[in-house]
């Protein structure tokens, strides 16, 4: 099946550096796709090339098989939710959502109806006549979403849309975003530097690093089978033991050696941190390396300075091709 969006050898140079370097990507219709990476990795530039705010130096962007590159932003059937929302401060909520429809010359009756539906979708009914300075950050976020979704784009671009919200609201909006995407069925391309956000929201994701794509796959694949040391370390804490890598939750701990046939190493506990649903232990292995372990059973009566054994199952080992 033809992907909805395809990037082919996309490259963008700025005066001093190459922001994105011959990247290739395919996103299927209806997917919630995330671009994950540290700041400055080129993910926002990629998004801006797709939206039409930057012109790539080389490569092509295909939407439904047609190139977007020659089209100005206003002729692309792609809409953006900006990091700072960019809700027009001189227009009411209603006027903000109607803005794109008016540009398309939709008749007034249809505008009123569509705006009403879009505001209902993001639960902003009743706030139509408010100005942006009279609503909260979370509500501005919803206006930005409604304003883009009302145009029924083929692809919605979201540029770190949750980063300006406070942590509690961020978690709540994350759930709402996922439900919303499932309901409207529009393809979402979500840019973030927060691995928890990317892992919990996406159907598939790509990890970017210094202008290149490191790996593409489902959240599970990337977490369990990272293709590079960068991906392994960016997606969560990881321990390097001999030639393999192990996530903290794959490791177990006991005072005595767990017995024959099980891989185990002696270690000294440095600190223990109670995290509510789990306990984190920082230990030092015999070779001096630090090893982080997270266990569910917080009742284990182990304190700093104690000699313990760290053990794991061979099936939990992560083998990285070229670490």
């Amino acid at each position: 099946m033809q992907p909805l969006l395809e990037l082919r050898g996309l490259t963008k140079d700025f005066a001093t550096h190459r922001a994105i370097d011959t990247i290739a990507l395919a996103i299927a219709r209806g997917e919630f796709f995330s671009l994950l990476g540290p700041s400055g990795c080129g993910k926002t530039t990629t998004l801006r090339c797709i939206a039409g705010f930057e012109t790539p130096n080389a490569g092509d962007i295909l939407l439904d098989g047609r190139s977007l590159v020659p089209l100005p932003p206003y002729r692309r059937n792609v809409n953006t939710v900006f990091q700072n929302y960019a809700v027009f401060p001189h227009l009411t909520v209603q006027q903000n959502v109607a803005f794109g429809l008016e540009r398309r010359g939709v008749n007034n009756g249809a505008i009123t109806r569509k705006v009403r539906d879009a505001l209902a979708l993001v639960e902003l009914t009743g706030k139509e006549t408010r100005y942006p300075n009279q609503i909260s950050g979370g509500e501005k976020q919803r206006v930005a979403l409604a304003r883009a979704l009302v145009l029924e784009p083929e692809l919605l671009l979201l540029d770190e849309p949750l980063s300006a919200l406070d942590p509690k609201l961020r978690k709540q909006m994350r759930i709402e975003l996922k439900t919303l995407q499932a309901r409207v069925g529009i393809t979402f391309l979500f840019v973030t530097h927060d691995q928890e956000e990317a892992l919990s929201l996406s159907d598939s994701l790509a990890v970017m690093n210094s202008g290149r794509i490191e790996q593409v796959g489902t959240p599970r694949e990337l977490y369990r089978q990272p293709a590079s040391r960068f991906v392994a370390e960016f997606l969560g804490e990881i321990n390097w033991i001999d030639q393999v890598a192990l996530r903290p939750e794959s490791l177990n701990i006991s005072k005595n050696h767990p017995g024959g046939g099980i891989k185990a190493l002696p270690a000294t506990v440095q600190t223990t941190t109670f995290l509510g649903n789990r306990t984190q232990l920082r230990t030092t292995l015999a070779n001096g390396r630090e090893c982080v372990i997270e266990v569910q059973d917080a009742a284990q009566n182990i304190g700093p300075g104690e000699q313990v054994h760290v053990w794991w199952r061979t099936s939990d080992e992560i083998h990285i091709p070229n670490p």
Partner: peptide
């Protein structure tokens, strides 16, 4: 980004200048 948002929502350069 206000102007970019306008272009993104389908306003031409002139419309983005005029309305935003």
């Amino acid at each position: 980004s206000f102007e970019e948002a306008a272009l993104d929502l389908g306003a031409t350069e002139w419309q983005a200048f005029r309305h935003v």
